[in-house]
Simulated assay, not measured.
Amino acid sequence: MARQLDEQMSGRFAVGRRLRVLDVGMGRGVQALRLARAGHRVTGVERDAETVAAARDALAREPEGIRERMRVLEGDGRDTGVHFLPGSFDVVLCHGMLLYVEEPDPLLAGLARMLAPGGLLSLLVGNGDALAMRPGLRGEWSAALAAFDGGETGPAALPPSRTPADGETAPARPRGGVRADRLATLTAKLAGIGAPLRAWYGVRVFTDAAGAPAGPGVAPDGDLAALLAAEERAGRTDPYRAVAALLHLCGVRG
């Protein structure tokens, strides 16, 4: 995710430019802190009070210059219009939050309004076109068959105890599993809110069902560098990226 995001940011903004970044559903602030360390001004929004406290604790341990560039707010993420003026940010991140929002359209529209012209919107979503992949690769045939008819919601999109963005404990799932989105549907929605899709990647192509019983993402041979290289290559290569557990979509405000 970090490599993909950096690729899109460097392709859109001048080298050395200090960007205004909004991270909605920031979790413990892994991406937000990384971008603040890189010199950007970052606002993180997270609704869970315990997670907000952990993010603020992590920020407090950073050097003064980084602390001055980042702020952490407790909020739902769907009320951005209350806190910020339209066009306030150059980059808006929403990594994983759409998995837990039953009606994503108002949130997407609000995120797009926060972008300045030419701004980058980065989304991480469940892949609704590949819900049967994980149970199928694990030999869970009944679950795989059910996932084919599961629409854009299903428990196959994520393992039960990990978040997509930073490997922390996930919030409770909605009844019936997390949401997932189809690429064609989100492409149309992004065009409709004025932030058309410019690039997309697969995330967790190979690792989502790998490593059992040690857990997803564990390299059997212990070669983490090779695992990351294989995932990065697959995440930008057809047909592999289309069957990833998650999709990273990047839209640009017109």
Score class of each variant (00 low, 15 high):
4 Q>A: 13
9 M>G: 04
10 S>M: 12
19 L>S: 00
22 L>Y: 07
23 D>E: 11
24 V>N: 01
24 V>M: 04
26 M>Q: 07
36 A>G: 05
44 G>Q: 04
44 G>W: 02
47 R>A: 14
48 D>P: 01
49 A>T: 10
52 V>C: 15
53 A>L: 05
56 R>W: 03
59 L>I: 05
60 A>H: 09
60 A>M: 08
67 R>F: 09
68 E>H: 08
68 E>I: 02
70 M>N: 03
71 R>H: 09
72 V>Q: 00
76 D>V: 05
82 V>E: 15
82 V>S: 13
82 V>G: 10
88 S>N: 14
91 V>C: 07
97 M>R: 06
101 V>S: 01
102 E>I: 11
102 E>A: 15
104 P>Q: 12
105 D>K: 10
105 D>C: 04
106 P>D: 07
107 L>T: 11
113 R>T: 14
115 L>N: 01
117 P>T: 09
119 G>R: 00
121 L>Q: 07
122 S>M: 01
124 L>D: 02
125 V>N: 00
128 G>A: 03
128 G>S: 02
130 A>H: 00
134 R>D: 06
139 G>D: 08
140 E>Q: 14
142 S>Q: 15
146 A>H: 04
147 A>P: 04
148 F>D: 09
149 D>C: 10
151 G>F: 13
152 E>V: 11
155 P>Y: 08
159 P>I: 08
163 T>G: 11
163 T>F: 03
167 G>C: 13
169 T>M: 14
175 R>F: 11
177 G>K: 08
178 V>E: 10
178 V>I: 12
179 R>P: 00
182 R>I: 09
185 T>C: 12
188 A>V: 15
191 A>D: 10
193 I>L: 11
199 A>W: 12
203 V>P: 01
206 F>P: 01
206 F>A: 09
208 D>S: 05
209 A>I: 08
212 A>T: 14
213 P>K: 11
215 G>P: 08
215 G>Y: 05
216 P>F: 07
216 P>D: 09
217 G>D: 02
218 V>F: 04
220 P>I: 12
221 D>Y: 05
222 G>F: 09
222 G>N: 09
223 D>K: 03
223 D>N: 09
230 A>T: 12
230 A>Q: 13
230 A>I: 09
233 R>A: 15
237 T>N: 06
237 T>W: 06
238 D>Q: 14
238 D>K: 13
240 Y>R: 10
241 R>S: 03
243 V>Q: 06
247 L>S: 01
250 C>W: 02
